[in-house]
Design a protein around this nucleic acid. Structure first.
Length: 595
DNA sequence: ATAGGGTTAG
C-alpha cells in the first residue's frame, strides 16, 4: 500500500487542527465544534491562552453559553481577555445577570477590567436604561470614555431604550471631545430610530465626512419613517452604493407595495446576496402575492442560493401574515433538507406560520420537534390552538407549560383568555384575568381587556361588557366597540347597541360594517324606522372606508371574501352552506339550553 | 505570528 507516502499520523492531525484553529471562533455548527473540541483536548490545547477564548466564542456562536462557561472554568488563572470573552458569550446569549456575575468574579480575583469589559457589559444591558446609567458612571470614573469605542457603544445602547434614552445618547454625543464617523453614524441612527427623521437629516448634512454607512443609515431612516420618495432622492445621490443601499431601497418599495419599482431596482442591482432575495420574496409573500413570491424563490434556488436562518424566518413570518401555506411549507421542506437540528427560532416561526394558516396538525408536529422550547414557542402554540377553536387543548397546554416551569407573560395570557373565549368559559377567564396580576405581577393591557370584553359580550353579559369597556384604564377602540356590537346582534340587544353606535360616532370610528350590524339589530327587533335611518347613513358614507376581507388558500388558489360580496364563482353554494351551518349551530344551541 | 470592541439591509 502507499502508507509510506503519508506523513506521520500525529503531524497530519496537527496540521488539520491548525487549519481549523485559525477559524475556530467563527465555527457556528455545534457538531463540528464538538469534534474539534475533542481533538483540542486530546492535544492538551484547551488551556492555551489563544485557544480557550476561541472555544468560548465558538460555543457562544452555537448558542451554548453553559458549554462556554465550562471551558472557562477549566482555565486555572483566567486573564482579562478570557473574562471579557466570557462576558461577551453571556451578552450574546441574553444572560445579562451572568455577565454581571462574571464582573464580580473579576473584581473578587483582582483581575483588571478594561474598556472591553465595559463594552460587553453595555451590550448585555441593551434596553435597560437604569443599568446603562450605572455602567456609564463606572466608565466615567475609570476613564474609559477616552476610548472612542465606548461612547460610540453608549450612543447605540442608549438609543435603543426609547424616549429617555435618546436624550442620554445625545448628551454622550455632545460631550465627546473627538468624534469619528461612527459616532456621527450612530447618532443619526439614534435620531432616526426615535422618529426624529429631519433632525437626523440635519445632522447628516452637518457631519464633516460621510462614508457609505452614513448614507445607508440616512436612507434606512427615511425608509423606516415611510418617506420612500425622500429615500429615493437620497439613494440617487449616494456616491458608492453597495448591496446594503440597494436592499434598503428595495425594502422601502416592498413595504409600500410598489412592486414595480422594487422589481425594477432588484433586476438592476449589480450584486445580489441572500438579503435582497429575501426582501423581495417576503415582500411579495407579505402582500399575499403567492405566485410572484414562489417564482422568485425558484429563481433564487436556480441561482444556487440556499435560504439561511434569517431568510427562512423572514419568509415564514411573511407567510404567516398573509396565510400563504403552500409557500410556508416549501420553506419548511427546504429547511429540513439542510439536515440541521430545528433551532428554537425557526421552530417558533414554523409553529406561528402553520397556526396562522390554520394547519394545526403541522403546527403541533413542529412544536414537538423543537428540542429547546422557549417562552415564544409555548406562546405561539398556545395562541395557535386558541385561535383555531381548540380552547380546551390550549388550556391543557397552558397547564403543561407551567408544569415545565415556564413563567407565563402578557402574551401567554392573551392566548389563555382567547382560549376561554372560544369555549365560552367566563368563570375561568375571570379567574385567569385576576391571577395574571395577583400571581405573576402582569398588569392587564388593552388586549387583555379586549379579550374579556369580547368574552362577556359573547356570553350575553352585554351590560358588564359595556361597563368594563367604559371603566378600564384604556380608551376603548373601534375593534372593542365592534365586538360588543356584534354580540348585541347575537343577543338582540337594541339599547346597548345604540349606546355603542354613539360611542363609535363620537370617536369617528364607525364604518359601514357597524352600520350594517345596527341595521340588522333594528330589523330583527322590528324597528323599521331605525333600520331605514341606518341604511341611509350607510349610503351616505359610501365606500369611504375599505372593507376588511378574509381569504383562504386551497390547492394553491387564493379565495378572497369581503362583507356582502357575491363575487366568488361558487358564492351560491357557499352562502347555502353558511346558512345550513347557522341553522345547525342554532339547533345545537337550543339543544344545549334545553339540557 | 496567534485573541475581545462601535454605525447600515432580510
Amino acid at each position: 500500500m502507499s502508507g509510506h507516502l503519508s506523513p506521520p499520523r500525529f503531524s497530519s492531525h496537527r496540521r488539520f487542527l491548525e487549519l481549523k484553529l485559525s477559524d475556530l471562533h467563527k465555527c457556528s455548527d455545534l457538531g463540528s465544534l464538538l469534534q474539534i473540541h475533542s481533538q483540542i483536548i486530546r492535544l492538551g490545547l484547551h488551556l492555551d491562552p489563544f485557544v480557550a477564548p476561541k472555544l468560548i466564542t465558538a460555543y457562544s456562536l452555537c448558542r451554548r453559553p453553559s458549554a462556554a462557561a465550562a471551558v472557562f472554568d477549566l482555565v486555572p488563572n483566567p486573564n482579562s481577555h478570557l473574562f471579557n470573552t466570557l462576558i461577551r458569550a453571556f451578552s450574546h446569549n441574553s444572560l445579562p445577570s451572568l455577565s454581571f456575575l462574571a464582573l464580580s468574579r473579576m473584581q473578587l480575583s483582582a483581575i483588571p477590567v478594561d474598556s472591553f469589559t465595559y463594552h460587553f457589559l453595555l451590550k448585555s444591558s441593551m434596553g435597560i436604561l437604569r443599568r446603562l446609567e450605572v455602567i456609564q458612571a463606572h466608565i466615567v470614573k475609570l476613564g474609559f470614555l477616552s476610548d472612542i469605542f465606548i461612547p460610540n457603544t453608549l450612543i447605540d445602547c442608549y438609543s435603543k431604550v426609547g424616549e429617555a434614552g435618546i436624550i442620554a445618547a445625545r448628551k454622550v454625543f455632545d460631550e465627546m471631545p473627538m468624534k469619528d464617523v461612527v459616532s456621527w453614524n450612530s447618532m443619526i441612527a439614534a435620531l432616526a430610530r426615535a422618529g426624529e427623521i429631519w433632525d437626523a437629516k440635519q445632522m447628516f448634512d452637518e457631519m464633516p465626512e460621510r462614508d457609505t454607512v452614513s448614507w445607508n443609515t440616512m436612507l434606512d431612516g427615511f425608509v423606516k419613517s415611510g418617506e420612500v420618495d425622500s429615500a429615493f432622492d437620497l439613494f440617487r445621490k449616494i456616491p458608492d452604493r453597495n448591496v446594503v443601499s440597494w436592499s434598503t431601497m428595495l425594502s422601502g418599495y416592498c413595504k409600500k407595495g410598489d412592486f414595480e419599482m422594487a422589481r425594477l431596482l432588484f433586476d438592476k442591482m449589480p450584486v445580489r446576496n441572500l438579503v435582497p432575495w429575501t426582501i423581495m420574496i417576503s415582500g411579495y409573500a407579505e402582500k399575499g402575492l403567492a405566485a410572484e413570491a414562489s417564482s422568485l424563490l425558484d429563481r433564487m434556488e436556480n441561482a444556487g442560493l440556499v435560504p439561511d436562518s434569517a431568510a427562512t424566518i423572514s419568509i415564514l413570518t411573511a407567510c404567516s401574515e398573509s396565510g400563504l401555506l403552500a409557500l410556508g411549507k416549501r420553506i419548511h421542506t427546504a429547511a429540513k433538507k439542510k439536515k440541521q437540528n430545528l433551532t428554537t427560532q425557526i421552530g417558533n416561526a414554523l409553529v406561528c406560520m402553520y397556526s396562522k394558516c390554520g394547519d394545526l396538525d403541522d403546527s403541533w408536529i413542529v412544536f414537538n420537534e423543537i428540542l429547546v422550547k422557549d417562552l415564544v414557542s409555548w406562546n405561539s402554540m398556545l395562541q395557535g390552538l386558541a385561535m383555531n377553536g381548540q380552547g380546551k387543548r390550549a388550556l391543557e397546554l397552558f397547564a403543561s407549560m407551567k408544569e415545565e416551569g415556564i413563567t407565563p407573560d402578557r402574551v401567554t395570557f392573551i392566548g389563555v383568555l382567547c382560549a376561554c373565549n372560544h369555549i365560552g368559559l367566563i368563570k375561568e377567564a375571570r379567574w385567569h384575568f385576576a391571577s395574571m396580576k395577583k400571581d405573576y405581577g402582569i398588569i392587564p393591557e388593552i388586549e387583555h381587556y379586549g379579550c374579556m370584553i369580547d368574552l362577556l359580550g359573547r356570553g350575553g353579559l352585554l351590560m358588564e361588557a359595556y361597563s368594563l369597556a367604559k371603566t378600564m384604564p384604556f380608551e376603548a377602540n373601534a375593534i372593542i366597540w365592534g365586538s360588543i356590537l356584534n354580540s348585541c346582534q347575537v343577543h338582540n340587544n337594541v339599547s346597548i347597541a345604540e349606546r355603542i353606535v354613539d360611542e363609535l360616532i363620537d370617536m369617528e370610528g364607525i364604518d359601514t360594517g357597524d352600520i350594517a350590524i345596527i341595521s340588522n339589530i333594528y330589523a330583527s327587533a322590528g324597528r323599521w324606522d331605525g333600520m331605514a335611518k341606518a341604511r341611509m347613513k350607510m349610503k351616505d358614507m359610501g365606500k369611504q372606508k375599505q372593507a376588511g376581507s378574509s381569504w383562504i388558500e386551497i390547492d394553491d388558489a387564493v379565495h378572497e371574501f369581503t362583507v356582502g360580496d357575491r363575487m366568488h364563482h361558487q358564492a351560491d353554494r357557499i352562502l347555502k352552506m353558511i346558512d345550513r351551518l347557522g341553522k345547525h349551530l342554532k339547533h345545537l344551541g337550543s339543544a344545549v339550553e334545553a339540557a
